[in-house]
Every structure is written in C-alpha cells, then in structure tokens.
C-alpha cells in the first residue's frame, strides 16, 4: 500500500475543527499543535505532538468532522494515513488497535482532568465537574 507524505510550513493549518475528513497523519519530523476553541472563539492549545505521533484518527474511527484544529508548530513532515490503510490496520493489526485504544483512553483522562481543572471554583456553580468525571469514570471506566 502506498504511503503518502505531506509537508507543512511552520504555522500552517493542517486541518480545522469541524472540517470533514478522511485521513489521519503520523508525524515524521517537526511538531504539531492541537487546538480547540472556547465558546468565545479563542483558540487554546490542547496538546503538542512530535515524532511518530498519530493525530486526526478520531475522524477515521467515527467518521465525524474534525474535533480539533491541527497547526504545524515547526516545519513538519507527515505521513498520510488514508481511510483504506487505517481500516486495513485495524482489521489485520490488532496491536495497532490496542495502542489506539490506550492512547484514546489517556487522552480522555487528560481531557477530563482539564475539565476538572477548568471548573469554576464558585460553590453552587456548574455541576459539570462531578458529572463529567464520574460519568466518564463509570461509563468510561
């Protein structure tokens, strides 16, 4: 199966939150920032990714639009993982799937931790912290 590569300049947008998508990327060199926007439209950094890290795979898993924006933080070269290759990998290389499951679990925990941290400290405020962490720990674990 062909591997395709693509190069991004520093600050170049790789994909935008909300875009439809049919590929993921593995970083060959460089650095990528994953960003989200808050309700006011301010972009904030969720995580930084480096060599050999995979991103953009959630859209391949569930076929929904991009859940975040990816921007090259340096000049970056990526391998493109097309849907057909991804499907092949998940079908025939279970270790790939298991490592994906582990990485998504870590990411989910990190997101929950961020949610808990972001909770306003005022009493009687949003009950989201309890709800979310418990919901995920349970539904999720």
């Amino acid at each position: 199966m062909d591997n395709h590569f693509i190069t991004f300049n520093k600050d170049e947008i790789i994909f935008l939150e909300g875009q439809s998508s049919d590929c993921a990327y593995i970083i060959e060199s460089g650095k990528v920032g994953i960003y989200r926007e808050d309700s006011l439209g301010n972009r904030f950094l969720v995580r930084e990714l480096g060599n050999k890290e995979l991103f953009g795979e959630m859209s391949l898993i569930d076929k929904y639009p991009r859940s975040a924006t990816a921007i090259a933080l340096k000049n970056t070269r990526c391998m493109i993982v097309e849907r057909s290759r991804f499907d092949y990998m998940t079908k025939f290389h279970p270790h790939f799937t298991v490592s994906l499951i582990k990485s998504l679990t870590e990411r989910l925990r990190a997101t929950i931790a961020r949610l808990n941290k972001a909770e306003p400290s005022r009493k009687g405020g949003l009950a989201i912290k309890t709800t979310v962490s418990d919901y995920y720990d349970i539904k999720g674990g």
């Binding site: 926007e37 808050d38 309700s39 959630m58 998504l104 997101t111 306003p120 995920y136």
Partner: peptide, 14 residues
C-alpha cells in the same frame, strides 16, 4: 466520549 468531553470543555469556558 472524547468528543463529548470536548463539548463540555467548551461550555465550561475557558
């Protein structure tokens, strides 16, 4: 679940 928690993260501000 990651998408759901992303949504809540947005709601929550920040």
């Amino acid at each position: 679940r990651i998408r759901e928690s992303f949504k809540l993260l947005n709601l929550q501000n920040p």
